[in-house]
Design a protein around this nucleic acid. Sequence first.
DNA 1: TCCAATACTCAGTTTTTCCTTACTTAGTCA
DNA 2: TGACTAAGTAAGGAAAAACTGAGTATTGGA
Lengths: 126, 126
Amino acid sequence: MKEKELYKNNLDGCPLTFALNIIGGKWRLPIIWALSKNGRMRYNQLKRGINGITSMMLTQTLKDLEDCNIINRQQFMEIPPRVEYSLTESGENLVPALKQLARWGDDVRNNIDNIGEDNGRDELQS
Amino acid sequence: MKEKELYKNNLDGCPLTFALNIIGGKWRLPIIWALSKNGRMRYNQLKRGINGITSMMLTQTLKDLEDCNIINRQQFMEIPPRVEYSLTESGENLVPALKQLARWGDDVRNNIDNIGEDNGRDELQS
DNA sequence: TCCAATACTCAGTTTTTCCTTACTTAGTCA
DNA sequence: TGACTAAGTAAGGAAAAACTGAGTATTGGA
């Protein structure tokens, strides 16, 4: 194979890099996952549901995901305030891709844990 | 829906988190991608093929991926030295999942571009 | 009157990740 | 002789990501 015919990596414009930039933060996947499981959720509901997240990280990550068009934010003008979050269509479309990745992760981990021995499967939704 | 029935996030043991930890470094995907396109590659071939990577980052990332059982490292006892890298079976299995994610990334990006008509430019696009 | 609940926001700090520059060993080419 | 190739290592610093702990406004209930 000649050097010139090699695939050359081009980071800008790669849709995979783009996708990973969207889901790549520490708390983004947990939020997306929780919303895909539970549907519409309020701020403090998310906070209670996601183990270890702080107010600040939740606020920031929700805003990031909203900017990426992955989640919707609906604010009700009430006292006490109420804000509900849910996945957008893009967000929903992401879920199958994540499931495939999760399936792969599961397989790999089983291979590492007991090499050569297949001991059933763990459920994807932990 | 009762609070107790909500899905609760458990980061340890989540196969998705596990998968993202494997592919989540800056240079991991470029290396995996290049190997999946070109098959077996030597160190400097990878270095030339991946735009902007330094020796150190390449060495480190290759070692990380080897530890994760994503790539094989085969060393030939020759002068000058020769080392060839290739995807393991786990590495090959990862590729379809990455492709699905990439497809999603592509769709989302196109959607953003189209929405841009009524909203001017946002800084999401590369 | 004081506390709880809601959905945040801010300043400052720590932790993690990534990068830069130089150096290695041993043989080959001019 | 000196430059070049191969496949890396080492030390230290910069940049990015994440965290800590506090404060905001409002109102109903004890």
